[in-house]
Design a binder for these strands. Structure first.
Lengths: 181, 181
DNA sequence: CAGTTTGTTCAAGATTTATTGAACAAGATA
DNA sequence: TATCTTGTTCAATAAATCTTGAACAAACTG
């Protein structure tokens, strides 16, 4: 017979291909392959899947599934569904793009933005210790630019969320579409 | 005397701290440490720096500087400045946030978005090979959702660029600020 | 309680990614 | 042409990250 423990849980062609899309998307935002696989399989499935089903169909370890599901739930990308008569956890994917993006921003992006703010605060006093006056003034100017960049980034977040929430803006640059928040 | 070949090119406290900001930012968008270091040092400097100065002040190899500068130029984050009377290349940082973001999106983001489009195209025919009709219809529904997400992402790019370009939008969600493109 | 089911933890191993540095190419200089 | 300067390439090495799986904890079952 065929090699390896062939079970009927193998992924179909379209499932493998759709999971591949999520694996690439995960990699794009710096998340490991297994995360993309787990979310991808849940996204393909018409019903909530159990821990064991994820292990078996994806052929990855229990450890990977456990950690992957943990992070995905933290991001709000996967939710538990309680199924009567079963002790097992059943996992479902979040399907709202807005919530997915919000979860990612809140968990993976905002913390860096906040710690960045603190860091820039401390930078000013270090710059004041520079002896060379011209260089010190130059550095203060650059610090100012950095603060501007930070402010713009902060303003961007709610705008992105608004667009993903279905809001429309009027956009005079792109002639074809009209947006209004 | 002190250990190691101590030269007077060591980074000052504020330089190290500012470079650290860029190293973290680079890591956030999936770029290696050396890229953040190179851009960071150029950002600190009041004048264009040479290849050798980057190697010596950052204490990284010629290979890293060569590859790092190559990518940064590709992203449009670093530009050459021709200096009369010197054969060496002199590098300067791009200081426009809009151009920095545009370069990053064009080089590192758009390609993935484009290849994603192709991939979704092929997915439909794979789904049509699914025997189970209910499952096939479910999969088609999910593919549709994915296409919607892709469209929204594409619409987002020009909006982000517009905001970074200084455009203002009216935003009814955040009560404090008013934006109008 | 003893055994079972379900999922977690984390150190070790596997894999991926980044960095180094010696050999090399291209162009200036003498 | 021979030599020097400047920067690139890429195979080997180092470092960072991910995955595995055995040991463990918690909660249910009989």
């Amino acid at each position: 017979m065929s090699a390896s423990s062939s079970n009927d849980s193998a992924l179909s062609a379209w499932e493998a291909s759709m999971i591949d899309v999520f694996v690439r998307a995960a990699s794009l935002i710096g998340l490991p392959r297994s995360i993309g696989e787990i979310y991808g399989l849940l996204y393909c499935s018409p019903r909530a899947l159990t821990f064991d089903e994820l292990v078996e169909r994806l052929q990855i370890s229990k450890g990977s599934v456990s950690q992957g599901v943990k992070l995905l739930r933290q991001l709000g990308a996967v939710k538990l569904k309680y199924v009567a008569g079963s002790r097992r956890d059943h996992y479902q994917p979040e399907l709202s793009m807005k919530r997915l993006v919000r979860g990612f921003i809140k968990d993976q992006f905002e913390p860096h933005l906040s710690s960045g703010s603190e860091r820039l605060q401390g930078l000013e006093s270090l710059i004041q210790q520079e002896d060379n006056e011209a260089l010190r003034e130059h550095a203060m100017g650059r610090l100012g630019t950095l603060l501007t960049w930070q402010q713009r980034t902060r303003k961007l977040v709610p705008i992105v969320m608004a667009v993903l929430g279905g809001a429309k803006l009027f956009d005079q640059d792109s002639s074809a579409d009209e947006y209004v928040i």
